[in-house]
């Protein structure tokens, strides 16, 4: 059951804090994302996007990570705003 208020990281507005709910897929990329610390419960923030809309720069566990939009789409997040 997906949370109706949840969304993918790719669509999270810039600067908005969110909590990771799940990461879809079973590829090496999924695994790499999790090993880089993107696991359910961790908070993430999109800092900016590159000139042509991809990749995204996100902040997680106090450091900055770049990932493509297609990769961000596999990460389901719950915005801190939607809780209010």
């Amino acid at each position: 059951m997906t949370n109706p208020k949840s969304n993918s990281l790719a669509h999270l507005p810039i600067g908005e804090e969110a909590k990771v709910l799940s990461i879809a897929g079973n590829s090496p990329v999924t695994r790499r994302l999790m090993e880089m610390g993107i696991i359910p419960g961790v908070s993430v923030k999109v800092v900016k996007t590159a000139p042509f809309g991809s990749p995204l720069q996100i902040k997680v566990r106090g450091y900055h990570l770049a990932l493509r939009k297609s990769e961000a789409e596999t990460i389901e997040v719950l915005s801190s705003k939607s809780k209010v």
């Binding site: 990329v29 790499r32 990932l67």
Partner: peptide, 9 residues
Amino acid sequence: PPFVMELPP
């Protein structure tokens, strides 16, 4: 190629 890359300080 995946583009999961750290942007170091």
